[in-house]
Amino acid sequence: MNHSIEVKNLHVSIDGQAILKGFNLTIPKGEVHALMGPNGTGKSTLAKVMAGHEDYIVESGEVLLDGVNILGQEPDEISHAGLFLAFQYPMEIPGVSIANFIRAAKQARLPEGEEINAIEYYKELYAKMDALKMDRKFTARSLNEGFSGGEKKRCEILQMAMLDPKYCVMDETDSGLDIDALRIVSEGVNLMRSEDRAFLVITHYQRLLDYIVPDVVHVMFDGRIVHSGDKELAKELESKGYDWVKEAFATASA
């Protein structure tokens, strides 16, 4: 068995427009990879395709979780297989409290007839909220409804921590977070780092990677990875911008 998440030669389009154009990436368990790249290059598209979004048309390629292709599976099946996506833009679900939502998500993972132990559930929920410095009053609020940008992102990480996924895809979790929140959320993520978990961290900024130090940094441009390196690469991007990548890419593909 292959303990990794592997994206192989992925081609994806929407409305006849190609977005991912031969995307390749392998993240072994235990590693954190950062994915950076200019706006509109297809980072969120990649994340949603991995999670089973049906609007995107997969022309070819595979996404393997532990060696099993998950493309074509329903989003809930992919979730049960261990993939979690922290959304760039989390949806609001009016009337459904955070506590009930996470509980339903956990319940959905249990075999028929088995019920969640409510006392243990709340204990775990409160412990994880405390770690993320979230006010316990939040449990009763409707999921993401009226949340500030930063609160939404914190709530995504709370869900991630509660659902214990094997593969975490975090899409711009840092955007919207203030300086303190960035540190707190990053600490939460670092606590989850382990030998049997892999992370794909999509971000525009080095500051997140100061806290969540990546093993590998990839630069994406026009639907594929054009350059990979160690954590220093992110710093280089921060100081130089993307132009040099674009230039290098243009000459390489010319």
Partner: peptide
Amino acid sequence: FYMMQRGL
């Protein structure tokens, strides 16, 4: 989609 991503 959001809710299904969480396993529902």
